[in-house]
Write a protein that binds this DNA or RNA. Structure first.
Lengths: 245, 245
DNA sequence: CAGAGTAGCGTACGCCGTTCGCCTCATGCG
DNA sequence: CGCATGAGGCGAACGGCGTACGCTACTCTG
């Protein structure tokens, strides 16, 4: 609760009810930013609103963070730390990679605003969490039997897929959320538009109508695992056949 | 050349040197926006600057476009039209898919700002170009022998990978471009920072130092095709083995 | 030639990120 | 014990943003 503005109210009343909170710090700023993004979405994150939430002025944040872009970089790296990558184990590398993929996916879906924020900073290239997770994931592929170079390419493949798939999912869910409606109702209300748009594209249309009766979230989850499986299959051929060429 | 502002200069001078350009239109707006983005980057696109380029006021644009988000949707769909997807041909589906993937990649690299803009609109879900290309790509997978549902999943897999990989590439290149330096020099100037960041991560470090002497663009291209190949391999196992399960 | 409709524009509003100079206060040193 | 120092915090202000609104001026219809 920041002091309400009154025109000089009894000047002698102790002028320092500060330190209610542990004051500002980079960590507090970053985690409050994440909470703000989670609850109110991308547009709601402004230096002013964030400052207000912390019981501080907007400009105070600049003592701990160079600018908004840097703040976002920190935020991205922070949530990247939520991903769980299992320890390397040659016997079950497929399971371990699958687990990582799912963990990354649910992280993105937990924080759907990353989709809109990732383009501004790329991945936070040198953030400690990102590096730690990359190292662990690289270890997974090395344990599976890939040489360093190829393990690196395999990891890039997997991450690109998961990020590509889930950010698109997250963007879709963000639009849905902004509509304020149930997914079922929302799709229903768009039905005429989509049907008209689809009418010249029989293949697309068939695909949609086939899906029509099923739970959309389940379809998304299945599509996701389908992709992961195919990638793992594709990688596996490189391990079983001798990796020449 | 919009008329310069002078305080009432001979009011009788013909007050309508308009129509130098074919006036405003949605198409002209969209294509000028793309050109602006290509030459000056994401931040340079404002309704005012775009209007100025078209010899018009900022608010005039709103006669043709509901708001900036809609403009961006149109822009994204427009550049999506640049992608080339070959006609379906069962005999060479791998080649056709590979071609599409490369075409999509070079489109993104030609317009690196899509990375920062995609998060705001998702993919322009119902844009005509996006639908047309999706239909064509779906046909590719159907021709390869996939059922509609699976063809849809296969397409999502490929697109998610290509988009994920190339937008990250594009974001990297944007940062590089903003630095104003040669890639070689830029990396060199960041060397101390990256080396310190990498020191606790031996696997990552080994990967980087191995790459150090090679042309970065070539590495990126190779990583990209590696991923495409693995995805195609993974998909192929579903065609050769009977697609049970 | 009257009327209606539309493209274009100037102004203004509220919000944004960020800079600057000031104030306050805890700290360490003589 | 007293004081200088430096850092954290803040209010005001700047320039720029997207966009709502109401006016003008043109073109086209009947």
């Amino acid at each position: 609760m920041p002091a309400e503005k009154q025109p000089i109210p009894s000047v002698w009343a102790r002028p320092r009810p500060k330190r209610e909170q542990p004051s500002l710090s980079r960590d507090r700023i970053v985690s409050e930013a994440i909470q703000l993004l989670d609850t109110e979405g991308t547009d709601a994150l402004s230096m002013r609103s964030l400052g207000a939430r912390l019981g501080a002025g907007a400009t105070s944040l600049y003592r701990h963070v160079a600018n908004k872009d840097e703040l976002i970089e920190l935020v991205v790296d922070e949530i990247y730390g939520e991903v769980r990558v299992p320890a390397a184990d040659p016997a079950r590398w497929r399971a371990a990679v699958t687990e990582s993929a799912h963990s990354l996916r649910s992280m993105v879906l937990r924080h759907p605003w990353v989709a809109s924020v990732l383009g501004q900073v790329g991945l936070a290239y040198l953030g400690p969490n990102l590096m730690r997770q990359s190292e662990r994931m690289l270890a997974l592929f090395k344990a599976a039997g890939f040489a360093v170079d190829e393990a690196d390419q395999a990891m890039k493949l997997l991450i690109a897929y998961v990020i590509g798939m889930t950010t698109s999912e997250a963007a879709y869910l963000s639009v849905l959320a902004r509509s304020g409606q149930n997914e079922q109702d929302w799709l229903e209300s768009l039905r005429p538009t989509t049907e008209q748009a689809l009418q010249d594209y029989p293949l697309l249309r068939d695909g949609r109508t086939a899906e029509q009766t099923r739970d959309p979230e389940q379809i998304r989850a299945e599509s996701f695992v389908y992709g992961v499986e195919r990638i793992l299959d594709g990688l596996e051929t490189r391990l079983t056949r001798p990796p020449a060429c």
